[in-house]
Simulated scan of single mutants.
Amino acid sequence: MAIQIPKPDGIIDLGVGQPDLDLLPVTLFRSMTLRRENLAYGEEAGDHRFRQTLATWLSGEYEHPVDAERLMVTTGNSNALDLICSRLARAGDTVLVEDPSYFIALKLFGEHGLKPMALPMDDHGIRLDALEAALQRHKPAFIYTIPSYHNPTGITQPLERREQLVALARHYRCPLVADEVYQCLYFGQKPPPPLACYDPKAPVLSLGTFSKILAPGLRLGWIQGSGDIMPSLLGSALFKSGGGLAPVSSALVEPLIANGELQRYLVGLRQQYRSRLERLYQGLHSDFGERLQIAKPEGGYFLWVTFTDGTEPMRRLAVAKQQGVSYFGGPLFSANKGFANSMRLCFAWYAEQELTIACKRLARLFARQ
Results as ranks from 00 to 15, higher is better:
residue 142 F to N: 08
residue 120 P to T: 05
residue 118 A to W: 03
residue 151 N to Y: 15
residue 146 I to L: 04
residue 160 E to C: 04
residue 151 N to H: 14
residue 149 Y to M: 00
residue 160 E to I: 10
residue 127 R to G: 13
residue 122 D to K: 04
residue 115 K to D: 12
residue 139 K to G: 13
residue 106 L to N: 02
residue 160 E to V: 12
residue 113 G to K: 05
residue 163 E to S: 07
residue 114 L to H: 07
residue 115 K to M: 06
residue 103 F to S: 15
residue 112 H to P: 08
residue 147 P to R: 02
residue 162 R to P: 10
residue 164 Q to H: 14
residue 123 D to E: 15
residue 119 L to R: 02
residue 136 Q to C: 13
residue 129 D to R: 11
residue 152 P to W: 08
residue 163 E to I: 15
residue 119 L to C: 02
residue 126 I to E: 03
residue 145 T to I: 05
residue 157 Q to W: 01
residue 129 D to P: 14
residue 157 Q to I: 00
residue 139 K to I: 04
residue 125 G to T: 02
residue 156 T to G: 12
residue 150 H to M: 13
residue 146 I to E: 09
residue 155 I to G: 00
residue 148 S to Q: 10
residue 128 L to G: 14
residue 143 I to C: 11
residue 128 L to H: 12
residue 154 G to S: 06
residue 113 G to Q: 02
residue 120 P to Q: 01
residue 130 A to Y: 08
residue 131 L to Y: 03
residue 130 A to N: 09
residue 118 A to D: 03
residue 108 L to P: 00
residue 162 R to S: 13
residue 155 I to E: 01
residue 125 G to H: 05
residue 108 L to F: 03
residue 143 I to L: 12
residue 144 Y to V: 01
residue 143 I to T: 09
residue 109 F to I: 00
residue 118 A to I: 08
residue 132 E to T: 06
residue 158 P to M: 03
residue 133 A to N: 11
residue 128 L to A: 11
residue 150 H to N: 15
residue 110 G to M: 06
residue 102 Y to Q: 11
residue 159 L to A: 14
residue 152 P to H: 09
residue 131 L to Q: 01
residue 141 A to P: 07
